[in-house]
């Protein structure tokens, strides 16, 4: 469904992605793992056209999208939930959802999708006339996700949905993501929360400083000692810590 080949993205003169190639198949939930500054969010921004890649190609359903405007890419059916739940803080929940359906022309359709979103997240219906910025973190994340779902995207890009949420809320969010996936949405998820992410993912990529470092299924990645070392707190660094303490 989505295919990136050798994508290199620059911020000014700084190279953020060093030739990233990855693939998302229809109906999959693919997860990109990586530490801070590894370029996870940059991958998503490059896909949606918020940043333009310098080299490489991106194909979506056989159509080349790496030189298109963000607007047109989103029209093709890619939904993007930006990092840090960037909602429209001073608009109400309802207006946020209306903005999510910006590209829809018919009012009835917007209303229909909104009812659907309220069905998904009943808490949003209770808060529908409240200013979005005054809601809790979890509610804001739900709003951000349902805003992206207003356009019924074929592929949903989720940028660290668990960022800054309490463990309980993280579980809720991941349960929602799983539900969405079961309902048939293809999802590309960027996460730091390795355990949760890999459990629900069909396939995972591990990113270090702008390069794909490893890829595989949940079991394959868990077996890799390097992943455990870097993200699960096992391996030589831990052993060294034991040496220091004792």
């Amino acid at each position: 469904m989505l295919k990136m080949i050798g994508v290199e993205t620059f911020y000014g003169k700084i190279k953020a992605l060093h030739g990233v190639s990855l693939e998302v198949l229809e109906g999959q939930l693919v997860c990109i793992l990586g530490a801070n500054g590894a370029g996870k969010s940059t991958i998503l921004k490059t896909i949606t056209g918020l940043v333009e890649p310098e080299y490489g190609t991106i194909h979506f359903n056989g159509q080349r999208i790496d030189r298109m405007d963000a607007e047109d890419i989103i029209k093709l059916g890619i939904g993007h939930v930006p990092e840090w739940r960037r909602i429209f803080a001073e608009l109400t929940v309802k207006e946020n959802l209306q903005m999510g359906g910006f590209l829809l022309k018919e009012k009835d359709l917007i209303h229909e999708r909104m009812v659907e979103a309220f069905h998904h997240f009943p808490i949003l219906e209770k808060r529908k006339d409240q200013q979005a910025g005054k809601m809790s973190g979890g509610e804001q994340q739900m709003l951000a996700i349902s805003r992206a779902l207003m356009l019924k995207p074929k592929l949903l890009l989720l940028d660290e949905p668990s960022l800054g949420l309490s463990p309980l809320l993280v579980q809720d969010i991941f349960a929602t993501i799983k539900e969405l996936h079961k309902a048939g949405t293809t999802i590309l998820l960027v996460e730091q929360n390795v355990n949760h992410a890999l459990k629900i993912a069909d396939y995972g990529y591990v990113l270090t400083t702008g390069k794909i470092f490893l890829s595989g299924t949940y079991e394959e990645l868990l077996d890799e000692e390097k992943v455990r070392e870097q993200y699960l707190g096992e391996g030589k660094y831990n052993r060294r810590a034991k040496v220091w303490s004792g």
């Binding site: 949606t48 918020l50 405007d69 963000a70 607007e71 989103i74 029209k75 939904g79 993007h80 939930v81 930006p82 960037r86 909602i87 429209f88 803080a89 001073e90 608009l91 207006e95 209306q98 903005m99 999510g100 910006f102 590209l103 910025g133 951000a144 805003r147 992206a148 356009l151």
Partner: peptide
């Protein structure tokens, strides 16, 4: 109007506005 909401959306978050398909 819708236009006013678009303006406010751009003020609140350019990235999210772009991700919603606003030019």
């Amino acid at each position: 109007s819708k236009l006013g909401r678009v303006f406010m959306a751009i003020r609140d978050s350019e990235q999210a506005a772009q991700a919603s398909g606003i030019n």
